[in-house]
């Protein structure tokens, strides 16, 4: 089963929603920076969810990640989903 890391999250954000010049996704505080402060809105999160679903073969119900604040929260959520899928 595929792993899902912060690097995967960065890669998917870059491909799906792009990165502004003033935003540093590789900064050390990336995981705990609010998506809003990284320049990502609800549509960017929707795109992220779609891509994670497709790539990792998991279902993410509508709204589950709609109010997610930070990359670390997404990481925890997806890890839990992947564990569910294994059992």
């Amino acid at each position: 089963m595929a792993e899902f890391t912060l690097d995967d999250l960065r890669r998917i954000l870059r491909a799906g929603a792009g990165v502004d010049e003033q935003t540093d996704l590789d900064g050390e505080h990336f995981a705990d920076t609010a998506f809003a402060d990284l320049g990502y809105d609800s549509l960017a999160l929707l795109e992220l969810v779609n891509r994670v679903e497709r790539e990792y073969g998991i279902g993410i119900p509508d709204g589950d990640l709609a109010h997610t604040q930070s990359p670390r929260e997404v990481l925890a959520y997806v890890h839990a989903k992947l564990r569910e899928a294994r059992v």
Binding site: G18, V19, L43
Partner: peptide, 8 residues
């Protein structure tokens, strides 16, 4: 174009 707006 600003990076975020290229794919959007």
């Amino acid at each position: 174009v600003p990076g975020r707006l290229v794919p959007q």
